[in-house]
Design a protein around this nucleic acid. Structure first.
Lengths: 156, 156
DNA sequence: TTTCCGTTCATACTTTAGGGTGATTTTGAT
DNA sequence: ATCAAAATCACCCTAAAGTATGAACGGAAA
């Protein structure tokens, strides 16, 4: 409460304090140098400068910057290539690491022979893998497998 | 030129003029009421108030373009999953209506036999169509055809 | 240790896909 | 009406894909 009041009116309180201090200073200066010739002009000039600066400072402190909130609608095209593998589906269908690998290459249009070469294994191995993939995905053809795998987010 | 200078430094010039006027006013006031007891304090107080206000006005005028423009980028997500057929690509590769139809069914994992049944034509017809599709898409296998067609936005 | 699973490979066989050629009919545009 | 392209179908052949079965090996879990 008190703290909050301090924070909110800090500038005003500071200004008041400064004013008080300056007035005391003025009084002192008055006693000291008021006798000097043309001291009043100097005194007034100093006063003017000081309080102008004070006013400027106060204004800067008090005038909270107007925040013009401009909402710019930025079109963000959702990239469909931001692929995230569906781990749940993957574990559900029970595809092994190698089988998924074969499936990915399959989706890229590679033949069994090409996949075999790519993975440095024999054609028969790929046939075994692909057969297992078809079993687990419950399909008969590689095109079906690719289609289903894409729908299940197993491949991009 | 001169007008521009006036516009640019209007605030400063106005401040200077006001200061001059006030100093003359002060001088006049000095002659008039300085004799009054405790007039100095009142004079100083008035000065303080006036110049504080002047400072505030000056600050406000000078720091006018202090509007913090907060640009909030509102992201508008554009659906990219709604398929739009790329007509340009379609005409470029020169796929006929029937060929595209076959390609679509191909992408769904149907065998040539199934496609034939689906379109009420013979298996050989589908073979001819698919061969033409492969030719036009410059691929060898149906999986490649599907992959390429998807990349060319010919099928969803 | 045993058992299970993944990975590897092989053989044999069937099915499907794909290439090539040729032909007929339909359709759309000039 | 005519011509080109599209659509239809057939036959033959090869390549690729897919099925079935069996087996060896290694790692991880029971």
């Amino acid at each position: 409460m008190t703290l909050n009041f301090w924070i909110r009116n800090r500038s005003v309180i500071l200004y008041g304090s400064s004013l008080a201090v300056l007035l005391f200073l003025m009084k002192w200066l008055e006693w000291r140098f008021i006798i000097i010739d043309h001291a009043l002009e100097l005194y007034a000039g100093a006063l003017a400068i000081i309080f102008t600066l004070l006013g400027i400072w106060l204004a800067i402190k008090l005038t909270r910057p107007k925040t013009n909130t401009i909402i710019v609608e930025k079109e963000v095209f959702v990239k469909s290539d931001e692929f995230v593998l569906d781990d749940k589906e993957l574990t559900r269908v029970g595809l092994s690491k190698r089988e998924l690998e074969v499936l990915q290459l399959m989706a890229q249009g590679l033949s069994n022979h090409q996949i075999a070469e790519h993975l440095f294994v024999s054609l028969n191995t790929i046939k075994t893998h692909s057969s297992k993939v078809f079993e687990k995905l419950e399909v008969q053809r590689r095109t079906q497998a690719v289609d289903k795998a894409k729908k299940l987010c197993l491949i991009p």
